[in-house]
Design a protein around this nucleic acid. Sequence first.
DNA 1: TAGGCCATCTGGTCCT
DNA 2: AGGACCAGATGGCCTA
Length: 208
Amino acid sequence: MDSVYSDIDSNSCDFFPHTDDEDSRASLRSASPDSSPLCQPRSPVPERQPEKKRRRGRARSEATVQVVKKNRRLKANDRERNRMHNLNDALDALRGVLPAFPDETKLTKIETLRFAHNYIWALSETIRIADLQAGKTGDPPLLLSPACLGDASSPGSDACSWSSSASSSSSSPAYCASSPGSPAAPEDYSYLQQDALYGFHGFVPGIY
DNA sequence: TAGGCCATCTGGTCCT
DNA sequence: AGGACCAGATGGCCTA
């Protein structure tokens, strides 16, 4: 957490080469009471002086209240900017672990999230079905070939094959009409190898 | 040119 | 009080 925000000040001007941030900070600094302890007069202070100072202080705080607010706003903007950058970094990391598309087009944010959702669902279904089959027949578990997972470009291609006999169930694309949020009915699981893939390969922005 | 996507700003709310 | 999070507003950029 500290590492995230420790350099906020050093980066605060990356997007705004010059803002009045410095100005407001400078004026705030000049108005800061922090410097007063070292500058207190050694001579005894007349009793009436605090009243005077209080009055002047009030007037100055009226004047600086806007500066303080502005400074606070600028800092909040900076944090918000950083927060969104972190969010985008996380999305980029997510894009990095998802199968790539051939045209190298960068997935939008919503596409990335939906794609990841489908992808996770497909993988978890793969594991589930594999466990079921292994328990039933003693066959080696179904494994999605790395070529298939890594090559999102050709959902219907032969590159997408399964490492067990189940791969012969259907060669025609069985598009998964249902979203991962409402996975296919149990009877559809015989098509899982395609469903799972097309569930996320077949993802089309706006269709989901 | 309209529409989609994005980055940023902003004010509000909640939490520590 | 200050920070995190959120959602709305706004303007810029890109593409069909």
